[in-house]
Design a protein around this nucleic acid. Sequence first.
DNA 1: CATGAATGAGGATTCATTCAT
DNA 2: TATGAATGAATCCTCATTCAT
Lengths: 216, 216, 216, 216
Amino acid sequence: MKQKYHSNTFDNIPNEKRLRILETAIKEFADLGYDSANINNIANKCGISIGSMYKYFKNKHDLYLTVVEFSVKKLKKVLEDIIIDKKDFLSMIRSIVKAIQVYTRNNVYLTKLYNQMSTENNSELVWKIAYEMENITADLYASYIKIGQDENIVRKDISPRHFAFFLDNLFILLQFSYSCDYYKERMKLYVSEDVFDNDDLMADELVKFISSALFI
Amino acid sequence: MKQKYHSNTFDNIPNEKRLRILETAIKEFADLGYDSANINNIANKCGISIGSMYKYFKNKHDLYLTVVEFSVKKLKKVLEDIIIDKKDFLSMIRSIVKAIQVYTRNNVYLTKLYNQMSTENNSELVWKIAYEMENITADLYASYIKIGQDENIVRKDISPRHFAFFLDNLFILLQFSYSCDYYKERMKLYVSEDVFDNDDLMADELVKFISSALFI
Amino acid sequence: MKQKYHSNTFDNIPNEKRLRILETAIKEFADLGYDSANINNIANKCGISIGSMYKYFKNKHDLYLTVVEFSVKKLKKVLEDIIIDKKDFLSMIRSIVKAIQVYTRNNVYLTKLYNQMSTENNSELVWKIAYEMENITADLYASYIKIGQDENIVRKDISPRHFAFFLDNLFILLQFSYSCDYYKERMKLYVSEDVFDNDDLMADELVKFISSALFI
Amino acid sequence: MKQKYHSNTFDNIPNEKRLRILETAIKEFADLGYDSANINNIANKCGISIGSMYKYFKNKHDLYLTVVEFSVKKLKKVLEDIIIDKKDFLSMIRSIVKAIQVYTRNNVYLTKLYNQMSTENNSELVWKIAYEMENITADLYASYIKIGQDENIVRKDISPRHFAFFLDNLFILLQFSYSCDYYKERMKLYVSEDVFDNDDLMADELVKFISSALFI
DNA sequence: CATGAATGAGGATTCATTCAT
DNA sequence: TATGAATGAATCCTCATTCAT
């Protein structure tokens, strides 16, 4: 049975209002991190009272967990959309890279929140929530690699799970590089000042890098 | 002229004391993040008065910047040690991977701090400090790749700067995976529960991944 | 005309429901005191809505007064039951002491509430409600003493009203000693750890104490 | 080793200031009870900042415990002053009754606080602090009774510990009757409206009551 | 220079009460 | 009449910063 970090009341409020709260909270947590995020601010920004906020969420931490859960679900959904109907590995990789570029730009705060999440000190609960999402990709990449090996497309002398790990590492840092200030500066330094105007080049090079690493 | 984020007094106190303050602060900032870190706590933990703390650092943020600068210098030094005397690219990569495994374990807080740094919202100043370090590796990797291309070892159809970027991305996430709780869990999920007992395997696979991506 | 601290609606709800509300509120006020008692909690615990609660009682204070009134009535009834048919003073005293021991154990919260009541700062209204009950015993004890004096059983050189006061003081503190944590510990300290297993001894000694104080 | 519920800083501030804080806090807790007492108010009333308050006391509860401890010590001291040099039991009883009348009037808040203390729900710690004081009187009264029995002044068919208990019960309720609003009203009802103008009468009657209960 | 007591603005949380359904 | 979501004033407590000694 899935645990819930908010009250039933929150489930029953109008969709529009619920989304407004979640989006506002995502932005606040993503921008400021857990500690500096201010519940009273969030409440003000979405035009509800603090009292209501505490009716919906037992405390700040539960609001955070609800927000993380919501974000992870959203990210998972994006992943699933990309994965569906991708028969071959290479085109999936290409799709993922492109999707990261497009999606991250339009959902900067989700990625920023993911980055914040990973710095939380007491990440046990956060990990429990994110686990499922990470698990999907971990298995997916590894299985694609294994199939590739069977089909003689992917090198046979490698560990699928390790390579799946490296693959996702590249994806995660690409996401950060399109959303978090520090990593954005860093990418400009590494590649060039106009890197954000050359999405296709970046995508092509990364696909090249990965292909070369994986395929025979 | 390099900017300083601390008073001359701080430069003149005994080495041992200065290091004690810096190490304590690194741990506090790395564990709790900028906002939750508590100056009074840091002062207590290293046995000096808050009054002195504010003689050394104008405010919390300056302490943070000093700490970041100190850490970045330390990281830079490690890099330089690895780089020196490495004639060929492949053995340098191998050295870096091994160094990450050994060094990160013994200096968990430096890496954690780097992770925290990159989530800070107003990272301009932080970036200014880290810039130099990132710049070294960016240039170094790119130049090695270029040389490799000239020597017909590295693929010619790739952008050196992009590939240098991907290379460093892999290194950074490996570092996080050896020090930050969230990424530690994630690596166990991707690879295996006993991944922390198999450093050599991890190193071999990563070197394989990178070599294959780069070399002809 | 007696004042009422609740709406007519409250008078008209099913008996069972009304009692449930009162008992729940008694327990809450007795355990936590007026300020810490939580109306919303009380409503939840007895399965009615806060809305209804505020239909029945204008505000928290009125609920409190209603509860106090109800409790005082209950205590008064117990007293009356003891008093009826008691021809002689000594056997009445004995009955009261025994009744305190039995009744207090089974109705801890009524006594606790009485203790809480007596600490309230603005006790005017509370006093008004309790007045009648205290008045009964005050008069009763005093009249018994006077009769005793006329019958040459009770010392003649004493003030009946003062002695009635001392008598009731002994009774009140005995009640507290059987229900309130602090006074329970105190009684164990004064008498013995197993004082709660020796009701008869306690009763006998107290009757002895009182008899000796009163009777010739 | 005695436990302390306040910081060393609090021990080191000027006596006058420390007393001001304690007296203000006693009054606040005595008047309003633990929950309604407001630390910020207390701080304001004695002209210190809340920040300092929390330097002196870890939290509200520790302030309370410190206040209780201070009050109990004061009460103990009063008791000891009365007890010293009292060769015979009867004159000690007389002294105590008189002292209660004088002292309680001048230190209403101490007695009120004692009453509040005894209603606290989680009274374990409070009891631990009060224990010592209660213990003194428990032993003292009991030993006086025993000596009286040996000297053939006090009835031999009674339990010294029980009678000591009843004795103190009479004293406690007398104290409450001179300080707490509810008990003041009650005493007026039991005795007479002008009871507070007739201290000697009350003292005489109570001494009569007790003497008669105890002595042969 | 060093110390650490003092400050008070700011933030998390509670709960009596209202009111639309 | 009954409901329970919504409100926001009130309260406990933290911590960066100042300043007198």
